[in-house]
Nucleic acid binder design. Structure first.
Lengths: 241, 241
DNA sequence: AAGTGGTCTAGACCACCGC
DNA sequence: CGGTGGTCTAGACCACTTG
C-alpha cells in the first residue's frame, strides 16, 4: 500500500467515525504532512481523492472542511449497444429502418436550428428480438462524413463514437409508455413501460447529435456501482437484466 | 490558464483531430516534458486527467496509448428528495405510511439474511401531490439508532444520509408499471409507467439499507452532465476494458 | 494583509512487465 | 534486463479569498 493510500484510508476513517464530523475544519496540508511524516504533495494527493469522492470541500484561505452529505453520486457508463448485448452472451442484430436528410428550421428545443441534419431510425436486436429503438439526428454541418454513410450495416451509435469527437454530453433517463411506432418496432403492447435514454452530445457547445433510445420492455436495468473510493479506481456501470 | 491545462488541451486536440488516432502510442512522459518545456510532473498531471476521462490508457513498460472509444460516461448524482422537490420551487411534504421491526431469516436476495431490520414505507410529496414512494429496510444491527427513530417527521432518506456512513452503493434504475399499493399511494392508474430506483448501501461489504423508490408518473428525469474534462472535477477514473 | 490551497520544479528511487 | 510509468521529496512561488 502506498503512503498516499494509507493517508487517505486514515482520513476516511476519521470522517466515517465522526471524529471529523460534517462541517469539521480539517488541519492544513502542512500540519497533516508533519503528522504523517510525508511531503506536502503526498498529503495533497490523499486529499484530492477525498474531494473527488465528494467527502471534502476545499477553498483557498478558508481551508478544508468535511462535506455535509446531501446526495449519492456515482459514475454512469453507457456502453455501445452491440457490446452490451454481446456481453449478455446474445447474438447482436441491427436493422436500419429509415434514413433521410434535411434542413431543420425549427425544432421543439431549438437545438439544431438552422443546421443540416441526417435523420436515422434503427433497431438493435438481441438474439433476433428487438432490444432498443434508436432515433437519431446528426448535425451534418459538423460531421459531413455522415452524408456518405448509409448506416445500413453499422449503427450510428457505433459509427459516431468512432468518428465524431465531443466535449460534453447531456443524458436524460425516464420511464415512458410505449406507443405508436415505438411499440410496433419493439413488439410491445401500447402502454407498456419502456426505459428511455435521451442524449445530446456537443462539441464546444455546438450540438453534434441528438438521440432517443427506447429500450424494449420494463426488464431493463442500469446499474451503477460506487465501490470503495480509490484514486485511480473505476466504477463502471454495469448493464444487467 | 495553467500549464497542465494548456498541455491537456493540446493533447486533447491531437486526439480529437486524429493526429493521435485510437491505438496510437503516445511519447513517453520525459519526451513530452521536453517538448512542452515543463517538468515531468506537470505532464503527468495532464496525462492523468485524460486517463480519468477515459481517453488514454497507460501501462508500465508498454507506454501510453489512445483508447478506442467504446462508451459514454458521466457522473450521476442523486440528491436528497426534499432538495430535489424544493429545487423545483415546490412545497415539500412527507408522510410516513408504516414502520415496523422484525428479523428476516430469508429474503429473496439473501441480502439481510439473519439481520434485525426496521421497515419503513413513506411518501414524499411536491405541492401536496405524491412524488415518490419510498420503501426501505434498515439493518438495525449496524444502525441501532434507527430503532429509536419513528420517522414520523423526517424521512429515512435524509436521516440515514446524515447518520450512517457507507462505503459502497449499488444503484439500479428501471421502468416499471405501477401496481397495487404503489399505484394507490402515487394516485396513478394501474399499469402507468413509473421510474424506479433501487439502492443497496453497504459499509465494508455489509448491507446498511435497501430502498426501492418509485417515482410518480413518467415525468421524472435524471440528468447527467459531463462538462469539460477537469482534473479536480468528479470524474472518477475509468479504464475498464 | 496574510494564510490557505494551487501550481510547478528537478531531482530520486521503485516496481512492474514486455522485450 | 531495461525502460516505462508510479511514487515521493523538499523546496519555491503564485493567487485567491476571507477574517
Amino acid at each position: 500500500m502506498h503512503r498516499y493510500e494509507a493517508i487517505r484510508a486514515e482520513l476516511l476513517n476519521r470522517i466515517r467515525s465522526n471524529v471529523w464530523p460534517p462541517g469539521f475544519s480539517v488541519p492544513r496540508e502542512e500540519d497533516l504532512a508533519e503528522e504523517f511524516g510525508v511531503a506536502r504533495g503526498t498529503v495533497r494527493r490523499a486529499l484530492a481523492s477525498l474531494v473527488a469522492a465528494g467527502l471534502l470541500e476545499r477553498r483557498k484561505r478558508a481551508g478544508t472542511r468535511v462535506v455535509e452529505p446531501t446526495s449519492h453520486q456515482s459514475t454512469l457508463k453507457i456502453p455501445i449497444i452491440r457490446h452490451e448485448i454481446e456481453t449478455q452472451g446474445r447474438q447482436y442484430g441491427y436493422r436500419r429502418l429509415s434514413a433521410s436528410d434535411g434542413i431543420i428550421t425549427h425544432d421543439h428545443q431549438d437545438l439544431f436550428a438552422g443546421a443540416s441534419l441526417r435523420h436515422i431510425v434503427c433497431l438493435h436486436l438481441g438474439d433476433g428480438s428487438p432490444y432498443q429503438l434508436e432515433n437519431r439526428l446528426i448535425n451534418v454541418d459538423l460531421v459531413p462524413e455522415a452524408l456518405n454513410e448509409a448506416f445500413a450495416e453499422i449503427s450510428p451509435n457505433e459509427w459516431l463514437l468512432a468518428q465524431a469527437p465531443y466535449s460534453s454530453v447531456r443524458t436524460t433517463m425516464r420511464a415512458a409508455a410505449a406507443h405508436g411506432d415505438a411499440a410496433t418496432y419493439l413488439a410491445l403492447p401500447t402502454g407498456a413501460p419502456v426505459f428511455v435514454i435521451e442524449r445530446i452530445t456537443r462539441l464546444d457547445g455546438v450540438p453534434v447529435t441528438h438521440v432517443v433510445m427506447t429500450y424494449s420492455g420494463s426488464q431493463f436495468e442500469l446499474v451503477t456501482e460506487t465501490d470503495d473510493l480509490r484514486w485511480t479506481r473505476n466504477n463502471p456501470a454495469v448493464i444487467a437484466r
